[in-house]
Write a protein that binds this DNA or RNA. Structure first.
Lengths: 359, 359
DNA sequence: TGGGGGGTTGAATCCCCCG
DNA sequence: CCGGGGGATTCAACCCCCC
């Protein structure tokens, strides 16, 4: 690895910049390429307000042939810089994902899963002409069929409260305080991804210290999640404004502590809303402290939703039970977080998550 | 349409059999193509050269050529037999859906949605090396970009408790009594789809009496759902055993009653009533005053059904839009008349007129 | 200060008949 | 084939304001 590229954002066209990176030097590529949307005229909501469309120049690649060529170019470079056991993630919608997926296979990548990001709060279809476009698709693929890419199975199972993580992930879109704004108060980037999505991607398929390359860095969500989780990032971005926003963003990120990044080896416990969801969504951060009802015992949160208290580690339920020398414990009511109003049970946050999930 | 093909299962290779069907004769194609190449019969390139028989060739990088060729062949036939406003559904997994989707776009189909069938009870990943493969992907596409395929928006909204149907559908896999068994008690088909899936597909994108072609008929789930819903089917299947099971299955199916097939209708499908009709019938008189919802703006009705508000005159829609400085306006819901009970939208009177037209 | 109501917004291939 | 015009069309989350 070119040491000077680590934890940096490189300015320029992604294909050209990637050519300057050495072979077999990164552990993971995460790519959010232009979707090449082909929108018609203006679109108005039923209340007559206008939808702020993604009409940026960078998304207009041209016809299928142009888009395929562009995809081949960046993907071959991505494959070259990957280590033999490396892997790639690509995200897209029905506009581009079939082309991207097909070229990925043709380029020699080996698809491991396709993952559905199921949006809990998508934009509706205002004209009643189609199904609500409520998801995006990610592809996770190894550099080669024989590669042995990282997969933290136990961590994913722990994050999902003891059952295998499925190929469909329900997560909200990026909005509210997480959504970066420019000086004018408008969104800094039209397609900013939620950190919760990258949290799950990086936690599942990288290890602390790994190098993650994002050739379409934008405002740096991949870098933010990587830095938080103790992974290294290399970003490539050609737009000076996005780059500026991303640099400021990354300067503010505090990495989680070492033990918080250490993930479970053998998980247990079951509940409908996994505690890991709170971590993923940033409601609880890795390294945060949890308190027993009277505040005498404490535990610290790890990135996969397990917690650690002295020698004891495991789920919120397990650790709670051990501390009380009890056969069982409802961690949701036992553990509390400190708020301005004093201690509050984490169950309050579970209720918030429930409200956002439709089952 | 060749009348003898309607509600029949045709035995043979799908490409060859489709060639015997006339152009522009079916309303919908539903295709569940094989994920692996086990072609049985000979496969010929467009120049009539023979393709070497292949068995599952996923192992070889670049071994997708035969699958792509096969996909091109059946898809071009499917497109040919579709009516101009026809549409296609294809279902697949990450093994084949990117290739199928890409070829579908290259063949001139216009993707309308990709739909995720989210399995409520998927098979777990036993080795713990990947995410549980808990979904399959469907693509819904129009024959052409300019086509106007059927979409029963209101019916889908009703099916989903009054909110728009999303692009992710949670349905259980086909099991239990629905799963067809052979004489040996084993499952008759390895990938039988649930009827609930086809129910939603056909209810959303066909009308009663439409003709649905399934070139990979298998044990006939498409035909079963079609017959139940009062749609016609044409099945193509080369395996004599599947064909036998499918025929027995279809013979048992009872179509739903006529009124049960009648689904929630979109207001767009209703007869148009000009505002002038209300004036003609004396329900509104020339000179009457119309009020906006809050009563702040008024307009007066003229004898020809146009209205006038200060300098502005024109249709109820045009004047309403101008007053609100909006790109458009539904005059029927915007304008109100004064009644003893307060303001009432003029849409109430339109409903009265509609009621008198229904005999 | 807490809850309720109104306004805003999000990767969107977003109407269709008739002259 | 194009243009005009009737008239159909939205869900969840987050913000701010106000009582």
């Amino acid at each position: 690895m070119v040491k000077s590229s680590i934890d940096q954002i490189l300015e320029g066209e992604c294909v050209e910049v990637m050519k300057s990176l050495p072979d077999a030097s990164v552990d993971l590529v995460f790519a959010d390429p232009p979707y090449n949307l082909q929108l018609g005229g203006d679109l108005h909501r039923p209340d007559n307000s206008k939808v702020d469309a993604v009409d940026n120049d960078w998304d207009q690649i041209g016809g299928f042939d142009d888009y395929d060529l562009f995809t081949w170019q960046w993907m071959e470079q991505a494959r070259r810089v990957l280590k033999p056991n490396g892997a790639i993630w690509v995200i897209g919608s029905y506009h581009n994902i079939f082309r991207v997926g097909g070229i990925l296979q043709d380029a020699g990548f080996w698809v491991l899963n396709d993952i559905i990001w199921r949006k809990t709060n998508p934009m509706p279809n205002f004209k009643g002409t189609r199904f609500t476009n409520a998801h995006e698709t990610l592809i996770w693929a190894a550099k080669t069929k024989d590669g042995r890419p990282t997969f933290n199975y136990a961590a994913m199972k722990a994050l999902n409260d003891g059952v295998q993580m499925r190929s469909d992930w329900s997560l909200p879109i990026c909005s509210g305080g997480e959504r970066l704004k420019g000086d004018d108060g408008k969104k800094a980037h039209p397609t900013q991804k939620p950190e919760s999505l990258l949290h799950r991607v990086l936690l599942s398929t990288t290890n602390p210290g790994d190098v993650v390359l994002d050739p379409f860095f934008g405002t740096g969500t991949t870098g933010a999640a990587a830095k938080r989780l103790g992974r290294h990032y290399i970003g490539i971005e050609r737009d000076a404004e996005y780059l500026k926003v991303a640099r400021a963003r990354l300067a503010e990120i505090q990495p989680a502590s070492r033990d918080a990044m250490c993930v479970t080896q053998s998980p247990r416990a079951q509940t409908r809303i996994p505690f890991g969801t709170l971590v993923e969504r940033g409601m609880v951060k890795p390294g945060d402290t949890l308190y027993c009802p009277k505040g005498r015992h404490t535990a610290r949160v790890r990135a996969d939703g397990s917690i650690i208290a002295g020698e004891r580690s495991g789920s919120i339920h397990q650790v709670g039970a051990q501390i009380q020398s009890a056969p069982s414990c409802n961690g949701w009511t036992y553990w509390h977080i400190r708020t301005k109003q004093g201690l509050a049970p984490i169950d309050v946050m579970r209720a918030e998550v429930r409200a956002t999930l439709e089952n």
